[in-house]
Structures are given as C-alpha cells and as structure tokens.
C-alpha cells in the first residue's frame, strides 16, 4: 500500500512542475491559486510576433542541422569502430560517457567562443557556430546509442551472411545493416534534437545577436512577459515529451527485434 502511495507521489513530482507552464500557457491570467479563463493567445504570439517566430525557425534549423551532422559523423564511425574489435568500442563508449563530464557544456562553450574568431573560420556569433556547438553537445549521446546499436546486432555475422548470398557493400548497407540499426539512429537523432531545442547555456555564449534561438528568446521573456514565456516553455515541454514517447516506442521495438 505504502509503495503505491510513494509511486503516486513520485509520478506527481515530475508531472506537477511540468504541468505548471502548460496550464499557465492556456489561461488568460493566473494571479490566484486557480488560473482563470482559457485562451490560445500566447501560442498565437509565438507564431505572429516576428521575433518569436524567427527564433522558432532558427531553433528548428539548428536542431535539424545538429542531428544531420551527428548522423554523418557517428554512423560511419560507429560501423568502423565496431569492426575494429570490441575492446576499442568499449573504451570509446566509456570515453563518450566521461567526455561531457570532464568538459561540461560551459567549458566547451568558452573554448569554442575564442577558437574561431578569425578568418578563415570566423564562426563565432554566426548560425554555424550554434549548429556546431549543438552537434558537439549532442555527440556523446548519439555516439553511445548508435555504437550500442551496432554492437547488439552482431553486424559481422549479418554482413558475412549477406555477402555469402552475393550482396555487395551498398546492398549490405541498404538492405541489411541500416534497417537493423535504424531504431538506434532514430533514438539518437531524437535525443540530439530534443537537447538542441532546449539548449540555452552554450547557445547564449556563442550565438551573439544573429542567431537567437527559442530558449534565448525565452530567457528574455521570463523578465518581460511571463505569458509569452509560458507558451514557449510549454512548447519546449511538448518537444521533449514527444521525443521521449517516440524513443520509448523505438526502445521497445529494438528489444523485440533482439528477442526474435
């Protein structure tokens, strides 16, 4: 009995704080204990005010680009490292866990900020810098998930079986390997996307004025207009929530694949 009381309490511990901005964003005003009225005006403000809308677009572009960059970097590398033997893979996976701990986003931001100020790579303050920073921050998560996907499918046996049936490298990739690791790649992509959409710390260091993302806009609005801030906050919660539902779904599918 007490176990279930605790369970409900623990569920509420996560749900209640997450519901606050959501309720706030749908109410006309909320000064007392209960919110008053229902409105979609604050969401409308995201789409109709140019500064908000642009920030939304910048965030979507940055997050998608960071995901693409990570796919291009991690998938070939994970394939190669998995072939080079499990010892290397294991060590690099541990490295990927430790890397963001020793070099936290704050430090990476400080370093990136001063590394690319001069031509040919004068990137600081541009959209490129934000994309690169987000790709670097998402990389350890992506790398771990994709490498784990390659390790669990027993890539070598599959490839050899496919090769013995006459499949060339391209066919092996297209019909055997990619479909098998796809749930892993998609999970990693969703995680990187969600992290990028909400990233504030490093972005505010490297972005300058040209690339204002949604969280940067939110930071201003917390001081200026709590109601628009609530809509942006709620939107970011939806993004995290949706990515997690999809990732959980992919996770169960991956487990089912392994079981069969």
């Amino acid at each position: 009995m007490i176990r279930w009381v605790l369970f409900v309490f623990l569920v509420l511990y996560i749900i209640v704080p997450m519901l606050m901005p959501v309720i706030f964003s749908f109410s006309v005003f909320w000064q007392d204990i209960l919110p008053q009225g229902f409105t979609l005006r604050w969401y409308e403000a995201i789409l109709t005010r140019p500064a908000n809308y642009e920030a939304l677009m910048v965030s979507l572009i940055v997050a998608s680009s960071a995901v693409l960059l990570n796919i291009l970097i991690t998938v070939p590398a994970a394939y190669a490292l998995n072939r080079m033997g499990s010892k290397w893979g294991q060590r690099l996976r541990e490295g990927a866990i430790i890397l963001p701990l020793v070099f936290p986003p704050l430090v990476v931001g400080t370093a990136l900020l001063q590394a690319f100020t001069r031509p040919p790579l004068a990137l600081t303050g541009t959209l490129w810098m934000v994309i690169i920073a987000h790709a670097i921050l998402g990389f350890p998560f992506m790398f771990r998930i994709v490498l784990a996907a390659f390790q669990t499918i027993d890539e070598r046996t599959l490839s050899e079986a496919a090769a013995s049936l006459g499949a060339n490298l391209w066919q092996r990739m297209r019909y055997v390997l990619i479909p098998n690791v796809l749930p892993g790649i998609l999970s990693g992509a969703l995680l990187v996307f969600a992290i990028s959409m909400g990233e504030f710390e490093v972005t505010s260091m490297v972005a300058g004025f040209t690339a204002q993302t949604l969280p940067l806009r939110l930071f201003q609005q917390i001081r200026n207009d709590m109601r628009v801030a609530s809509a942006i906050t709620a939107f970011l919660i939806y993004v995290s929530f949706l990515s997690f539902i999809l990732m959980t779904y992919l996770g169960t599918r991956m487990r089912r694949l392994q079981a069969t």
């Binding site: 704080p17 959409m197 609530s230 906050t233 995290s240």
Partner: peptide, 10 residues
C-alpha cells in the same frame, strides 16, 4: 532533455 529555463520557469 529539458531546458534549464523550462524547469526554472516551472
């Protein structure tokens, strides 16, 4: 994956 700002606001 939640932004630090989201949690602060909440």
């Amino acid at each position: 994956t939640l932004s630090g700002l989201v949690v602060a606001f909440a």
